[in-house]
Design a protein around this nucleic acid. Structure first.
Length: 112
DNA sequence: TAAGTGACGTCCG
DNA sequence: GCGGACGCCACTT
């Protein structure tokens, strides 16, 4: 069981139409403070079948690729296809973030 | 073995 | 919200 396996398993848990951050994925994989490793793993396993790599973004709610690059647009398109809405170049984590916020207000707001 | 490198995160001004 | 300074740590040179 390598850390890469743990990270891939965590990424696969992100439901369709939701997004998570590198740090979150690392934490879920049981590897706190290893956000960078998540990026490294996704980079070295680009076309693992069934891996929703596009649902992983950075903590500021933005895609971690240069704006306008092929990779950026590829990821953005995949997310929009699942119903994730972009406000400018960012995603509202209160609405699409996963795991969902734990405050009652956040949960109620996310389902209206 | 040391130094450089990030699909990153948090804090601060 | 933005950009810079740091911290972090697996990997590559």
């Amino acid at each position: 069981m390598t850390s890469a396996d743990l990270i891939l398993a965590a990424v696969r848990q992100i439901p369709r139409g939701k997004v998570s951050s590198y740090g979150q994925v690392a934490a879920i994989a049981g590897l706190p403070r290893r956000a960078r490793l998540v990026g490294t793993v996704l980079r070295t396993h680009p076309n693992t079948r069934g891996l929703p790599w596009h649902r992983v973004i950075n903590s500021s709610g933005r895609i971690s690729f240069p704006l306008g690059s092929d990779a950026y647009m590829r990821q953005r398109k995949l997310l929009e296809r699942e119903g994730v809405v972009f406000v400018g170049e960012r995603i509202n984590m209160k609405l699409f973030g996963w795991p969902p916020g734990d405050s009652l207000d956040e949960v109620l707001w996310s389902m209206r």
